[in-house]
């Protein structure tokens, strides 16, 4: 990751928030999707060096994170049985 110092930490914190909130989604398909998309898009942009571009991406991520946080909460309010591919216990 070419981003250095403050922006690198910022990006990693943002990534952590995405992973944390996505993995709390109750619905299997939505959870897997948002985890996959978070991984893909942070990796796809890992060579971005232009500081303006980085801050643009970060502010876009901030908005998406808001959606993710709210929807993660909602998905835990209305839940359904686990799918046949989902283990009932994590371990």
């Amino acid at each position: 990751m070419p981003a250095t110092g403050a922006s690198k930490t910022q990006i990693l914190h943002m990534y952590k928030e995405f992973i944390r909130n996505a993995s709390k989604i109750q619905n299997y398909n939505f959870r897997e999707y948002f985890l996959r998309r978070a991984r893909e898009s942070f990796r796809a942009n890992k060579n971005v060096e232009n500081p303006e571009k980085i801050s643009e991406l970060l502010s876009e991520a901030e908005k998406d994170l808001g959606v993710l946080k709210r929807q993660s909460v909602i998905s835990n309010m209305y839940t359904f049985d686990k799918l046949v591919v989902e283990p009932l216990k994590k371990r």
Partner: peptide
Amino acid sequence: YRESGEYGTRPI
């Protein structure tokens, strides 16, 4: 259903 009971029941 995976009879073990270790998996959910909702269809794919």
